[in-house]
């Protein structure tokens, strides 16, 4: 890393630390979820009677938020729009990680920009919802506003770089590629980019220690993932 500025070294170090926190933190939680036994069959009925059916049920939750749709259409709308937009934004960002840029990622470019705007707007909507509905206000913790605010700020700084203070995307890409290939190069001296990256790293560290674990946890929820074959196949409790 000879010849790199102190700032570049600092950011590279922080990036690796954040990535490690995300990777190992998330993995250890997922391992914990997977390793904890299910003593009893507790799918929320009516439940699928085959493994394929149960997989489909979980897929429905992950891809369409089916239960939330049953629960509250307005929350579903805000949450679903946010998550789809986030997915598009992430897809678009792969352009900074992959050389050459795959066709699909290239295609996600223009809608990805729109998605950035929509995502940030959805977050504002979800924030207002938490404040405006008395039940939601009562249950909302600082952590809930923190997560919304953090991701919204990431969105805003990204959009500023796109529309207000254009950043040198080529320099950004070579910096990122350098990081992911473990051969760091000088980072672009762009305060907005630095802020954007700092916020992203904060999110990476925050992720495995917070409610954002719902991203992995949903796959392990026994009420959704279990198959209803209680009478047909004996479920054995490993600790009894």
């Amino acid at each position: 890393m000879g010849g790199l500025s102190a700032l570049s070294i600092l950011f590279a170090a922080m990036f690796y630390a954040a990535a490690a926190a995300l990777f190992f933190g998330f993995l250890s939680k997922i391992y914990q979820f997977a390793a904890t036994p299910s003593p009893l069959k507790i799918p929320t009925a009516p439940a699928p009677t085959t493994a394929l059916g149960a997989a489909g049920r979980v897929a429905g939750e992950v891809l369409f938020f089916t239960s939330l749709f049953k629960g509250n259409k307005w929350t579903w709308l805000g949450g679903y729009v946010f998550h789809v937009a986030l997915a598009l934004v992430l897809l678009r960002h792969l352009r900074y990680f992959l050389q050459p840029t795959p066709k699909l990622v290239e295609l996600a470019g223009p809608p990805g920009v729109w998605a950035g705007i929509i995502m940030t707007a959805a977050l504002v909507y979800l924030w207002i919802r938490r404040k405006a509905v008395d039940r939601a206000a009562y249950i909302s913790l600082l952590a809930d506003y923190f997560a919304l605010g953090l991701i919204a700020l990431i969105g805003v700084t990204g959009l500023v770089m796109k529309f207000v203070i254009r950043t040198d995307v080529a320099a950004v890409k070579s910096f990122i590629i350098g990081l992911v290939t473990f051969s760091p190069v000088e980072m672009p001296a762009d305060p907005m980019f630095m802020l954007h990256l700092l916020l992203v790293m904060a999110l990476m560290v925050y992720f495995p220690f917070s409610k954002l674990l719902h991203a992995g946890g949903v796959f392990f929820s026994p009420t959704r993932a279990q198959v209803d074959d209680c009478r047909e196949r004996r479920h054995v409790n490993p600790w009894a």
């Binding site: 979820f33 904890t36 239960s67 409610k211 674990l213």
Partner: peptide, 18 residues
Amino acid sequence: GKYKSLRVFMDICVRCGS
């Protein structure tokens, strides 16, 4: 450590209010 339900449910609620 004994109930996957409790383990997972303690961590993943986002307080959406559904």
